[in-house]
Design a binder for these strands. Structure first.
Lengths: 204, 204
DNA sequence: GCTTCATCTTGACGATGGAAAGAGGCAGAA
DNA sequence: TTCTGCCTCTTTCCATCGTCAAGATGAAGC
C-alpha cells in the first residue's frame, strides 16, 4: 500500500502521540466517552498499534493521570514561586496553581481525582500523586515550621481538603452556578486567604 | 421456553430491580466497568429489557446518581437530627452524614461527584443535587442567622468544600494512607469541629 | 373469549478492547 | 554490502458492548 511521508509504517513517536491525542479526546468526550480506537485514529495508526505501548486502555488512562499530576506539580510550584507574602503566600500560590490546573483540564482532573473509582493503579501514577502531596506538605511546613507534626498534618488535611473540595464542587456545578468567572475567582482567592490565615494561627 | 415462577415473562418490578443490581454493580466494578447488559443479567432479564425503563445507559446512571443524592440527603438529615449542640452541632452532623454516605458508597459517590465528566444531566438528578445543597445552606443559615448573605454563602462554600474535599481525598487515598479507620474518623471529626467553630466565629 | 397494549425476548448492527498472526523496516553482524 | 533478528505496525478475528427493530407474552378491560 502506498504510504505518504507523513504516515510512515513506523510512527516513531507513537507513545507521545497517543498521550497527546488521548488527552484531547478525554477533555472532548469525557471519561466514559474515551476510547482507545479513537486515540489511535487521531494518531494516524491502526487500532491495534497502541497495544505495544500501552498494555490496556486503563494503562493509557493511568499514564494520562500520571502526567496530569506531573503538570499539576509544575503549576503549583510556578504559582508558589511567583507569589509574594513569604511562606503563607507560597501556600496560597500553590492553591491558585492547583485550581487553575483543574479549571483548565476538568476531565483530566476528574480522572486524577477518581482513579480509585476507575480502577487505575500504576507505580508511575502513585509516584506522581505522591510528589504533589509532598509539595503541599512542604508548603504547609514552611508556614508553621515550629508546630507539632500532628498540627502540621491537620493543617495539610485542612488546606488540601478546602482547595480540592472548592474547585471540585465548582467544576461539577455544585457551587457558583450563575456567578461570573471573575466573581468565582474572587471567591476562590477569598477562600485561599482565609485558609492561609487559619494555618498561620494554628502555628502560633 | 419453560419459565420458573421466580422469573415470569413480565418481571413487574424491573425498574427497581435494575436500580438495585446497577448500584451493586457500580460499587463492584467501578464506573468504567459498569455495563447495562450485566445489570440486566443480574436482574434476570434479557439484555434489551432495560430499554423500556431507561432510554440509555446514561439514563440509568443518572437515576443511580439521583437516588444517591436522595439517600445522601436522608443521611445528612438523620445525623443532623441526632446531633447535640444546637445549630452548630447540626452542621457537624450533616458533615458526618455526608462523609458516612460517601465512605459507604464510594463508587456511587464518585459518580455523583463527577457527573459533569460523565456527561450525566437529567432534571431529576439536578433536583436531587439541589435538595442536598439547600439542606446544607439551611444548616449554615441556622448557625449564623444574622450574618449577611455574602458571609453565609462564603461559609457554605467553605464548609461544603472542606467536607467534600476531605472525604474525596480520603476515598481516593490521597490522605491518611496508613491510618486506621478509627484514626481517620477522629481526623474527620476534628476537621468538622474546627469547621463549625469557624462558621460560628464568622457569625459574630 | 377477545382485544389491546405495556412489557419482555430474540436477533441484528456497528463499535469497542484485546489477542493472534503476519508484514515492514531498522540496526547490527557477517 | 547483504543477511538476520527484532521492534513496530497492520490485518484479521473474537467476545462483548449499547442500541434498534421485530416478534412473543400475558395482564387488564370489554
Amino acid at each position: 500500500m502506498e504510504r505518504s511521508k507523513a504516515q510512515p509504517y513506523h510512527h516513531g513517536q507513537l507513545r507521545e502521540a497517543l498521550v497527546t491525542s488521548g488527552r484531547a479526546l478525554l477533555e472532548e468526550k469525557g471519561i466514559r466517552g474515551f476510547t482507545l480506537r479513537e486515540c489511535a485514529r487521531r494518531a494516524g495508526v491502526s487500532h491495534a498499534a497502541p497495544a505495544y505501548h500501552f498494555a490496556s486502555i486503563d494503562d493509557l488512562l493511568a499514564e494520562l493521570a500520571a502526567r496530569g499530576f506531573d503538570e499539576l506539580a509544575v503549576a503549583m510550584t510556578t504559582e508558589a514561586n511567583r507569589a509574594e507574602g513569604g511562606a503563607a503566600g507560597g501556600l496560597i500560590g500553590q492553591g491558585v496553581g492547583y485550581m487553575a490546573f483543574a479549571a483548565g483540564n476538568p476531565a483530566l482532573f476528574q480522572l486524577m481525582s477518581s482513579r480509585e473509582a476507575n480502577r487505575l493503579d500504576t507505580p508511575a501514577l502513585a509516584a506522581a500523586a505522591d510528589k504533589v502531596r509532598a509539595l503541599h506538605a512542604a508548603a504547609v511546613e514552611a508556614v508553621i515550621p515550629h508546630a507539632s507534626g500532628e498540627i502540621k498534618q491537620r493543617m495539610a488535611d485542612f488546606t488540601g481538603a478546602s482547595v480540592h473540595g472548592f474547585i471540585s464542587l465548582l467544576l461539577d456545578g455544585q457551587i457558583g452556578g450563575k456567578d461570573s468567572s471573575r466573581a468565582l475567582k474572587a471567591r476562590g482567592l477569598s477562600l485561599l486567604s482565609a485558609m492561609a490565615e487559619t494555618v498561620v494561627r494554628a502555628g502560633g
